[in-house]
């Protein structure tokens, strides 16, 4: 483990590879299932974050992709039909809620676009760009402010 951490820090191993090193330590079936769920949700939310013009298409693609993910789950295939039908609604309810969030997001986005072209500036103190404070602290060369980052500052979009 120490060697792997060392290699990770030295840049001899890419983080994406070492991720597997660490996860391999815990070959826990429950965790594997959870992992798949996170990826499904994560992929869909990332589409939202990018806000590209074709992003609604991506949502559809993400939704379409979901049954495929189920299909390649060998464990799910080999389980009895009764168990499988119990699993499926979970996936669809996850997909449905993600789609609902995105729909609301899209409406809000479009409403804003429909507003005035030139908006009056807002005082920085009234609309604090905390994301920039965090970005500064993560790169600033003198290190003490680094420690102040609270969990809410550093929590990435998941």
């Amino acid at each position: 483990m120490k060697k792997q951490l060392s290699a990770l820090i030295d840049g001899e191993v890419e983080i994406d590879d070492s991720e597997h090193v660490i996860t391999a330590m815990k070959s826990n079936e429950k965790v594997k299932d959870a992992w798949k769920h996170y990826h499904l949700i994560g992929d869909a939310i990332r589409g939202d974050a990018e806000m590209q013009p074709d992003f609604s298409e991506k949502v559809l693609q993400a939704l379409e992709a979901e049954p495929t993910v189920l299909a390649i789950n060998k464990q799910a295939q080999s389980t009895p039909a009764s168990k499988r039908t119990m699993k499926t609604p979970v996936f669809w309810s996850v997909a449905a809620s993600v789609a609902a969030v995105m729909f609301v997001g899209l409406m809000v986005f479009e409403l804003e676009l429909g507003g005035q072209e030139e908006l009056a500036p807002v005082e920085i103190a009234k609309s604090l760009p905390i994301e920039y404070l965090q970005a500064h602290q993560s790169l600033a060369p003198s290190g003490s402010s680094y420690y102040i980052q609270s969990a809410s500052f550093t929590e990435p979009q998941q």
Binding site: E112, L113, G115, E117, L119, A120, P121, V122, E123, I124, A125, S127, L128, P129, Y132, L133, A135, H136, L139, A140, P141, S142, S145, I148
Partner: peptide, 29 residues
């Protein structure tokens, strides 16, 4: 150290202006 961030203003994005102090950190838009 001082960071300068530059971001294109999107249509409909309200620009920020002014200054504020938090602890030892000064921020200006």
């Amino acid at each position: 150290s001082v960071s300068v961030f530059i971001e294109p203003l999107a249509k409909g994005q309200r620009p920020k202006k002014g200054h504020m102090l938090m602890g030892s950190t000064n921020m200006c838009a």
